[in-house]
């Protein structure tokens, strides 16, 4: 297997997956704690829209999905603030409109079905060095954000009103979290696709929450499980020749069942 690492696409894939596995689950903790699951759906569909647009217009899908997701978040924040509508409701609206636009692009521009499917299960081995550096830099920003704002984030996740009365600008922090989630979802789409990104984002925090007694434990637990699934899934994928996204999702699901079973024992 080691000789496969001499192939640049495989090496890049392993590096990126390891970095993403260790850091992206942090945003999974954010998603759970701030009850942003409707937002995640919107972002997943937004990423599909970005991917469809890129395929249709033959532009870089990596950056397009990021831009589309950021724009969606920006629209959502503006609309939710100005119209005083619940962010969950407005996310649902944008989710529906995104997927409908995505299919319009796919249909009107005759995007090949095979290319469209890469949006659903990712394309880990086609990363350019610029994209590798982009993902690596974002991972550093995400980890730095978590470390720097750990106290404020803890307050925000515990109770927004308490955070407010403690002097924390919880509103600004909330939107910073939403933007980071938007970028993470867009990047994870590239790595393991829309359908399987929960294996990297959500399952690690869910498993970590079984034993975590503090936010610190939850973050570290999520990062460790994310890293284990990413590296383990990659090795499995190379060993038995299946898509990396599927092997990561299968491994994470298996781990979830085993840990859940032993937890209740």
């Amino acid at each position: 297997m080691l000789e496969l690492l001499s192939l640049t696409p495989i090496l890049k894939g392993l590096i990126v997956l390891t970095v993403a596995g260790l850091t992206f689950p942090i945003t999974g903790v954010y998603l759970f704690r701030l009850n942003l699951l409707p937002l995640r759906f919107m972002l997943m569909h937004g990423a599909i829209l970005g991917g469809a647009m890129a395929l249709a217009l033959q532009i870089n899908p990596f950056w397009t999905t990021i831009v589309v997701n950021l724009l969606l978040v920006l629209f959502m924040v503006k609309t939710s603030r100005s119209m005083k509508i619940d962010a969950g409701q407005i996310s649902t609206f944008f989710m529906v409109i995104s997927i409908s636009l995505a299919f319009i692009f796919i249909y009107k521009f005759n995007v090949p079905a095979k290319d469209t499917l890469t949006l659903l299960w990712g394309n880990l081995f086609t990363l350019s060095w610029t994209e590798v550096i982009g993902i690596g830099s974002f991972a550093v920003v995400l980890a730095g954000f978590q470390y720097h704002f750990r106290r404020q984030l803890r307050a925000l996740f515990f109770d927004r009103e308490i955070a407010f009365t403690s002097g924390i600008n919880e509103s600004r922090l909330y939107y910073a979290v939403v933007f980071l989630v938007a970028i993470t979802v867009a990047l994870a789409m590239k790595l393991i696709g829309a359908l399987l990104l929960d294996a990297l984002l959500l399952l690690p925090p869910v498993i970590a929450s079984f034993r975590a007694r503090s936010l610190k434990g939850m973050i570290f637990g999520s990062a460790i499980w994310g890293g284990v699934f990413a590296i383990g899934g990659f090795i499995l994928s190379v060993a038995i020749d299946i898509p990396a996204s599927s092997s990561i999702a299968a491994l994470a699901s298996l781990a979830f069942i085993i840990i859940y079973f032993f937890r209740n024992k």
Binding site: R151, A155, A163, R213, S214
Partner: peptide, 13 residues
């Protein structure tokens, strides 16, 4: 999952 000590630390803002 937050410890009692962490809740008190929120007060430090």
């Amino acid at each position: 999952p937050i410890s009692a000590g962490e809740v008190v630390q929120i007060g430090l803002g």
